[in-house]
Design a protein around this nucleic acid. Structure first.
Lengths: 327, 327
DNA sequence: CAACTCCACGGAAACGTTTACGTACCGCTT
DNA sequence: AAGCGGTACGTAAACGTTTCCGTGGAGTTG
């Protein structure tokens, strides 16, 4: 059905080795025969069989990416970044979605491990030591640091610090925080940073505990926030913030008049909200691109020292923050 | 480094053929030797090399999916459906995002073609005859029908018909429609259905032409709608609808008081909007799952007659539709 | 007891590449 | 003219499976 290097070799009057060399850029072939081979190949519709190539070289040219939830625009953007960078390197990407279930991350890793050259693991929900350790494949983490692991993260501490400083400047000194999944490393960073900043600034911080990173989680967070004296709410991410805004509206609390709201991530959702959402910008495309770049370096030198790259974050002021209403 | 079937064979005191048979469910092996092989395999950390397996069987066990934009929750959900179904069949999925560029669809098809057993092509932006025809691989279309092609689509005609009937019942007889990308098959369905229904119902239909399927497209659509006597707007999809709502708000037009809005797709965005968006529900997970099911049938029998599966749609009434304000 | 069937398993070819090694040839130096 | 280095290319082994075919032994039948 589909033609092989032998067919091309025969047609071009050369050996299969020469065909192979003509296709792998580096090979020592004269320009004239390379041209001859390539035109015959085109004529026959030949392209190298990736399975055979991979069997001998051990490289598939594919990379895998594992995310908690594809439907979360945050992760969709990360994948777009990965994709864009991978396309330049002629790599295909395999994606696995774990539906926010930590248990599935190990399965996904295992099933991808033999298929790809390296794996990007975004925002793992498992503890790092629960991940299978025997699969012997380069892994780059996104939004999680761990000793001995390659990673690209964002400076969440700085982002939420800016948020709290800004709220303080507006006059808020009772601020609530709705956290995310327990084992989210980035969530831990946010909590920790908020605690120290709150102490420094003399702000009362009401930790509402962790809610689901969904609209429903946001609805719940709003009720929790209204049970405290807080006049502002910082949410784990934009989705939670929007859920909370919905619930505030339903309960007759004006945003930002009665309650200021700050999200995190700066996804497209934050511009869609009415009023548009003040949020902490977290680079997503860039994180995806950086992860591929790191993976490439890792693959080039497996014994290199792990790199931990950190991207900048910044507060984006929009319409959901204002001075607290005077009472 | 990683062990091979020969290692397992030696350890278990059998031949490599028997190891292979023990792993491929069907093979004729006694229970006792199979058990022995499997325990030795586990002990050595062996799993079959997919490249070698694929080289001889010609099957990779992978499927590809191509979408115009991963960041659009509509397509993210389709992929989640694909993923869920594929996980059951132990298939990995390769994803390609074409950034809404028709030109990249051919490239994506070509680069995936040799890597996977079959491809799901969602909402192609290219004309069907512009797709490479020589790649000799099963393809299932989503949201596009074409003679001789396998496809799963939704009954968009019925969905928008319900929307128009509902608006008419509320008292709207001047309705605007903002269309999507020119070569979108589903967009064509919507336009056509609206035209015939409008004629039947005696509704004046104002076709605003095609706008980008983005927030910005929605902003533009709103201005166009306000330049007509229309009291209701039907948008190409939820994103456009939300963009339009934003713009209506900015121009002081109350929704639904001054203008009713109907979206399409029923993505999570429609529940996020304030007020929540009346929209046409289009199954997405189900479309993804159905596409994998069709692909499996296609792969099982390449000569079978193409199947064109159509999923149901239905209007979901929420808060953006109401009777027009009396003048 | 012979002839036959069936089952479990081993031997070996095949899948389509890449690459180490070998060889012929060309041009240059001494 | 002999020797030598370099370049372009061919030969063949190797990658790790699956599967066809063959074989020996156990069980069944006449």
């Amino acid at each position: 059905m589909t033609s092989t290097s032998r067919d091309v070799a025969r047609a071009a009057g050369v050996s299969v080795a020469t065909v192979s060399r003509a296709f792998s850029e580096a090979g020592a072939v004269s320009d004239s025969t390379r041209r001859k081979v390539l035109t015959e190949a085109r004529r026959l519709g030949y392209s190298p069989n990736p399975a055979a190539r991979r069997l001998i070289t051990g490289r598939s040219g594919n990379i895998g990416i594992i995310v908690p939830d594809l439907a979360n625009p945050f992760f969709a953007d990360i994948i777009k970044g990965v994709q864009r960078r991978a396309r330049e390197g002629r790599q295909a990407i395999l994606v696995a979605d774990t539906d926010e279930q930590a248990r599935l991350e190990g399965d996904a890793l295992r099933s991808l491990a033999r298929q790809v050259d390296g794996i990007i693991l975004a925002s793992p929900r498992s503890a790092i030591e629960d991940l299978p350790g025997d699969l012997n494949i380069p892994i780059v983490l996104i939004h999680r640091q761990a000793p001995g692991w390659w990673s690209v993260t964002a400076d969440f501490a700085e982002g939420v610090r800016q948020a709290l400083v800004n709220l303080r400047a507006l006059g808020h000194d009772h601020v609530a925080y709705a956290g995310g999944p327990h084992l989210s490393w980035s969530g831990g960073m946010r909590t920790e940073s908020l605690r120290t900043c709150a102490a420094e600034l003399g702000v009362h911080l009401y930790e509402l505990g962790s809610v689901a990173p969904t609209i429903d989680g946001g609805l719940a967070a709003a009720d929790l926030a209204l049970a405290t004296p807080a006049t502002a709410l910082i949410a784990y991410n934009d989705v939670v913030a929007l859920g909370a805004m919905r619930r505030f509206g339903a309960r007759g609390v004006d945003v930002p008049g009665g309650m200021s709201v700050v999200g995190c991530d700066n996804t497209m959702l934050s511009q869609l909200a009415v009023p548009s959402l003040t949020t902490v910008d977290v680079p997503r495309f860039e994180a995806g691109e950086a992860a591929v770049a790191l993976l490439d370096r890792y693959l080039a030198d497996a014994d290199a020292e792990p790199i931990e790259q950190v991207l900048a974050t910044a507060l984006v002021i929009r319409g959901t923050t204002a001075p607290p209403r005077q009472t």
